[in-house]
Design a protein around this nucleic acid. Sequence first.
DNA 1: CGTTTATTTGAAAACGCTCAAGCTCTGTGG
DNA 2: CCACAGAGCTTGAGCGTTTTCAAATAAACG
Lengths: 231, 231
Amino acid sequence: MRAEETAALRGLRLFEGIAEPTFTDLVAAGYLQFFPPGVTLIRASDPADFLHVVIEGVVELYAATAGRETTMELVRPVGAFILAAVLSDQVYLQSARTLTRARILMIPAERVRRWMAQDAAFMSAITVELARGYRQAIKALKNQKLRTAAERLANWLIIVAAEQGTPGAVEIDIEKRVLASRLGMTPENLSRAFATLAGHGAQTRGTHIDITDPAALRAFANPDPLIDGPE
Amino acid sequence: MRAEETAALRGLRLFEGIAEPTFTDLVAAGYLQFFPPGVTLIRASDPADFLHVVIEGVVELYAATAGRETTMELVRPVGAFILAAVLSDQVYLQSARTLTRARILMIPAERVRRWMAQDAAFMSAITVELARGYRQAIKALKNQKLRTAAERLANWLIIVAAEQGTPGAVEIDIEKRVLASRLGMTPENLSRAFATLAGHGAQTRGTHIDITDPAALRAFANPDPLIDGPE
DNA sequence: CGTTTATTTGAAAACGCTCAAGCTCTGTGG
DNA sequence: CCACAGAGCTTGAGCGTTTTCAAATAAACG
């Protein structure tokens, strides 16, 4: 692993402020691997053997039941996933697959648990990260229960425009079908939601969205820090 | 607080295995109070000052935005709520109100954080509880995104029948409007969902549901341990 | 290019919501 | 004990949203 990648890893909230030996050993114990797009990394109901960290690429967490499937979350660098299952030594609730070519660091769950018991700072960082994930899940549930499809899209646009640092535009770098699933709707409905937002200050052309009237979009979206807030 | 209640508190996962002084101090620092039904205990967006523990009664966690409101969770004895906000010293994402007369133990957040730093066993218990809550939220999101209203009700019936220890029947002890909101639908729609389930082995009469054909109900509900599992 | 895959559009059906009215149950006061 | 008021629940009708199915268009890939 290159030095700059190690540094990036250090920036992960999960590894913030933990002792150097802990960090070094965790990284050393991990398997760093490239995967092509479309590879299933973990399968729901399997025991949690590894903590996964996305170093490069995009990973989709998804869940399925009774023949239906939905995207739960998209993980980008540098982000860890499936922490909760690893900690409690339980099965995964979600599956994960690569959407792009991706570089993944896989740290044996047993090693994570061992260091957690030995390094108080690591334990503390895990707690913070768990709490963050928990709150994010609560927000996702509120988003799903309290908003219509078009509203979810509008708020997503506002968030992503800010993340991309382009207040007036959004560039979609994933398939729209995946975006639709993440936002809890069908691809067809996503198309229609985009059409709806054309009347509220957001013009879509392929993967590029121009936010021509931010005020109108915000008025329609009704963003709420208790749902859309970062943290 | 009576000895039997202290014992019940000890049974809370959060207090499992922690040092006696920690437990004693946390309980001693807490305010134990009765509340009548309908009292708002905490309000979303307020800073998290207390960890709340339900000793008696039922508490509803709910969330609202843009004039809409939904029930997020129902907390019964002995259960703690809003742990994540307390730990990270952040604002509440959800509001809470009593549905019945309720007895609540309120432990100052600052005290929880202090003991967390000092008692490794407590820290560990918190991590386990956080992970549990996190996974529960993920399950709730899967439930909401992957199932229809009637399916959510059917699975809820199966779960509650087991909890109540009566495989062939369920007794509803909350208002149906609250149940509807918890299951992510309107009261009208809940009525229709009950009507639908009459054709799948569940007969409803007021607050009493007879599961006349468990196999048929299960066939309709399609229960999935990765959504409905206890743990 | 031509083939495959993704996205959009259209039409119909299913689902869920709103509004309104009727019903049931409960508790209260006559 | 009964009548009644109020709250909660159910039912019906209509509407808007979302999904499904099918087809057309656009984009991506070899």
